[in-house]
Design a protein around this nucleic acid. Sequence first.
DNA 1: TTGTATGCGTTATCAA
DNA 2: TTGATAACGCATACAA
Lengths: 349, 349
Amino acid sequence: MFSMSLPTLADVARAVGVSRTTVSNAYNRPDQLSKQLRDRILAAAEDLGYPGPDPVARGLRRGRTGVVGLVYDEPLSYMFTDPAAVLFVTGLATVFDDAGTSLALLPRLRVDDPDAGVLAEAAVDGLVSFCEASDDERIAAFVARRLPFVTVDGGSTRAACRVGIDDRGGTRAATRHLITLGHRRLAVAAFPRHHHEGRPGRPERGALRPARLGGIRDAVEDAGLPWDSVVVESADEEGTRREAGRRVGGRILDRSPRPTAVVAMSDELAAGVIDAARDRAISVPDELSVVGFDDTPTAASTAPALTTVHQPLVAKGETAARLLLDGAPDAVVELPVELVVRESTAPPP
Amino acid sequence: MFSMSLPTLADVARAVGVSRTTVSNAYNRPDQLSKQLRDRILAAAEDLGYPGPDPVARGLRRGRTGVVGLVYDEPLSYMFTDPAAVLFVTGLATVFDDAGTSLALLPRLRVDDPDAGVLAEAAVDGLVSFCEASDDERIAAFVARRLPFVTVDGGSTRAACRVGIDDRGGTRAATRHLITLGHRRLAVAAFPRHHHEGRPGRPERGALRPARLGGIRDAVEDAGLPWDSVVVESADEEGTRREAGRRVGGRILDRSPRPTAVVAMSDELAAGVIDAARDRAISVPDELSVVGFDDTPTAASTAPALTTVHQPLVAKGETAARLLLDGAPDAVVELPVELVVRESTAPPP
DNA sequence: TTGTATGCGTTATCAA
DNA sequence: TTGATAACGCATACAA
C-alpha cells in the first residue's frame, strides 16, 4: 500500500510507543534523551519514511521561518540584467548564506497591486526593500507586521532602518570634475521616470533618484552656471539598460548645439551613451566626455574605460543583510562614494 | 499600552462580534459574505492593526507556502559571479515572478553537512537543484519529503525530473571544429574537480561535468587521434572563474610542445585562457585557437570574440521553473546546443 | 449569509 | 529521562 500523506511526528511516536515530545526531542534536543531511545526513534522514522519535522509547522510553533525576503519593484529579470543590482544581491546573499538563512526573491511589487498583497503574504522573518520608487506606501503592508525591515537606496523613504549611499555627493563630484575640465554644455542621461499610474495623491510620474539629479545641480550652480542650460534626458524602459542608454545618448548627441559632456546616472547608461557616440563617429573623450555611476565591471570594460563614481555595492548588500540579522531597529547607514577618473573624460574640444 | 504580540484573526472576530470563519472569509472568500459586513471587518482589522492572515499559519493549514527553493553547492557569491549561472537564474526568476511564486535561495549545501539539513528544513513547495556535483545523495533528504523537484545539469543524477543540455554533443562539435581546422596538439581547460572530503563510498575527487570531457574525447577518437595526446588541466577555485582560467591557461601555454588549441569548459575559463595568451604575447587566433562553452555575454566581449558552444541558459531556467510549477512528475528535457564560430579560432600556425 | 467544530504538525512548559 | 497538555493562527467541511 501507499499512504497518500506523509507520516508525521505523531506516527513515529505511536510506532515507537513514546510521546510526541520525545520524538521531537530526538530531533531538536538530542541531549534530552538516552542515546538508545534516540537511535530507536530515528530508526523507526527512517523505516516509516518520516522526513523529519515539517518546516512550516515548526515555523508556526517557533515563530520564525529562517527566511528573509527581498522585494524589488521591477521585473526580477531586470535585477539580474543590471550589474549593479547583481553585485548588491551578491553582498546580501553572501551574508545570509553564511548565516544559514534563505533569501527569498519575492514576486515583484506590481503597480496594480496597491495593497502589496505580496508583502502581506510572504512567510519571512524580515524584509529587504530594494525598490527604487521613492514612495513607501506599499511597504506599509509589511510594516504592519512589525517585522524587521531594511530599505536600500530608499530615496525619500522615512523608513527607520535604511542603508544608502551619498548619491548627491557622487554626482556632484562627477559634475564638478567635468566643469573643472572646462565643459560648459552639459547633459544628463537620467533614469526612466517612475509610474504611479492612477494612484491618487501622487504625481503621475516622479523622477527616479532625485538626489543624483540634485548633486548635478549643486555642482552646476556652485560653478555659477545656469541650471537650465543643462539638458536632461530620461531613459525609457525597453530592453536592457545599456540599450536604453544608447537611445538617450542618441537623443542627447543629436541636439544642437551638441553637449560636450554627459553625466549618466549609471554605468550601463554611460556605456550606452558611448555606444551612441561610436554610432555617430564622435570620439570619446576627444569630442565628448562621459561619466558614469556605480563602477561596475562594465566601467572597466568600455572603450575608453569609464570615469565613474564608485559605490561599494557588495558592501551595501552585506550591510543591509547584517542590519537585518542583527535586528538593528533604526540604523541609518550611508556608505561613501568616490570619483574614479579613467579615460572617458577630457577637456572639451 | 503596547501589546507585545500582534492581534490575530480571532481578535478581529471578537472585536466585530462575528466568528473567526467569517473573518477568514472576509480575506479569502469575499463573495461569501455581504459587502457591508466585510467592510466592517476590514475596518476593524485596520483599527486593531491586524496585518492580515499569518502566512505561516496559512501555509500550515493549506499545505503550501508559495515558495520554491533553489539549492546550489557552491557559495552563493559564486552563482552571481558566473554569468552563465546568472542567466539561468534569470530564467527561473522570470517564470516564478510571473507566477507570483517566491524563489528562495537556500543556504548552500555544505560538504560538511552530509544530511543536508538545509533541504530537510526548507519551507518550500518544491526545489530546483542546481548542483554541479554529480552525486545526489544529499538530495535524498529532500526527496523523502515527496515534494516536486527538478535537477538542472545534474550529470549522472538519477533524478526523475531533470533538465539539461547536450553537453557531450557541444564539446564534441567544438573539438571537431578545431580538428577540422588542422589542430593536432589540443588542450582542455577543465572545471575544478569536486571535493567529497571524507565521505565514505565516494571517490575523493570526481571530475566535474564528465560529459563535456567525454564529448572532447569522442571527437578526438573519431578523428583517429590518441586521447592521451590531449593535455587536460583542471582549474582551481581561487577568485573568479576568469582568474582561474588565466591560471590554467598559463599552465597549458607554458608546456612544450605548446598546444595550438584549447577547449575551455566555459566562456569564463576561455576568457581567462585568452588573458593568459595575451600575458605571453601569444596571438589568438594566429598562434592559438580557443573555444568556450555557454555563449554568455563574455563570449562576445573578449578580444577576439570567442568561438563557443551556445546553450539556451535563460530557457533552461524557464523550463526548470515550468516543470516545477506544472508538477511534471518525471519529465526529462534536454535542450540543444549549437557551435557559434567567431574569431578566436583559426588554422594552426 | 453566518457559525461550530476540528485538525494542520509541531514545540514549550511544566510536571512526573 | 520521559510524558501530558496547551498553544501556534488559521481554513475547511458541514450544519444552521
